[in-house]
Amino acid sequence: MKKVLLTTTALVFTAGFAAAEGHSAASITISGEAIAGVKYIEDAAQETTQFLELDFGVSGKTVTDGGLEVGASFDLDLNSGGEAAPDDEEVYISGGGITLTLGDVGSADDSVIANIADIGFDGIGIDDTAEFFFDTTTQNIHVKGEFGAITAVATANMDETGTDASEDYGIAVNYDAGTFSVGAGFTNNADEAGLDEDIETFILGGSVTAGGADINLFFHTADADDFAESVSGYGASVSYPMGALTLVASVGATDLDDDDADFGVGASYDLGGGVSFAGGIGQVDNPFADDDGIMVADMGIKMKF
């Protein structure tokens, strides 16, 4: 799934910068996060490996005389393979509860629908198979409307390079009552994996807080003329905070004949200052092979600044 980077501020130029430029509401924010640790995959050529990833983001915003907020952002990511490149470039304009974003935007379903929480410092893949057709569309237009407890999102593609854009699109809506939320969506994924027909996916997701635990439930079903039958994925996750320690358990599965459930448990300990130590262990199965699942695990440090 995509990481949200611009959540923790490391450096903000506000009053001085704004006064110099003549925009009292203008600001630039630099933020980031990093993870580092070890991963284990049973029966892999190298079962235990080191992994690290650095993600930095830059965003800027200002407000027009008419009260519209406009802004832009991009990320710079670096992983263990030494690959670094700017991505997630976005420009937005917002007013009256409506936000229009252009660029490398997220899909409608991932914007508002609760899904299965993965476990570990980077994630060991408990949710991957169950969410195979979730957040897979590629769009560059994102429209979000916020109306009290209801949030609605629509996403679509527009040609950028002189060639036909894929006909991917999606719609989703979520109702948030505070102690619980529920969302539903529909996506159309064009030309996926060389198929002749589009893949249509219906998604349901919800979350509830009960007994001090945060519970997420997820279901989706995907269909296309090239499929012998529709494919459904579903799962649940539970997160239970106990002071600085948070325990997590997740399970995910599909209705494919050869797929066994993926499941695992993990924990995260908040060290303060945006730093936490996390790890998880579980079983992940190949959904297209009649075999037993393999054990996967990871352990490492996470930091936000």
Rank of each mutant, 00 (worst) to 15 (best):
M1F: 07
K3L: 07
T9V: 13
T9R: 11
G16Y: 02
A18N: 11
A19G: 15
A19R: 14
A20F: 07
H23E: 08
S24Y: 00
S27E: 14
S27F: 05
G32I: 07
I35D: 04
D43I: 01
T48M: 09
Q50C: 00
L54I: 14
G57P: 09
G57H: 11
G57I: 03
V58Q: 02
K61H: 10
G71C: 10
S73P: 01
D75I: 05
D87Y: 12
D88Q: 14
V91D: 04
Y92A: 05
Y92N: 04
S94K: 15
G96T: 07
A108I: 02
V112E: 06
A114Y: 08
I116N: 03
D122K: 15
D122S: 14
G123C: 04
G123K: 02
G123Q: 03
D128E: 13
D128L: 05
T129V: 14
F134R: 02
T136A: 11
T136P: 00
T138C: 02
N140A: 07
H142F: 12
K144P: 00
K144E: 14
A154S: 11
A154T: 12
T155D: 09
M158L: 14
E160A: 13
A165M: 05
A165N: 08
A177C: 06
V182C: 07
A184M: 12
A184F: 10
F186A: 05
D191L: 08
A193F: 07
D196K: 13
E197L: 00
F202P: 01
F202Y: 13
L204K: 03
S207Y: 00
G211M: 06
G212T: 06
F218V: 04
F219N: 10
A222W: 05
A224V: 00
F227E: 04
E229H: 08
S230H: 06
Y234V: 04
G235N: 07
V238C: 11
P241S: 10
M242Y: 10
G243L: 11
L247I: 13
A249Q: 08
T254V: 04
L256G: 05
V265N: 08
G266C: 09
G266A: 09
L271S: 06
G272R: 09
G273H: 07
G279N: 06
G280S: 09
P287V: 03
P287Q: 04
F288K: 05
D292H: 08
M295V: 15
A297V: 03
M303I: 13
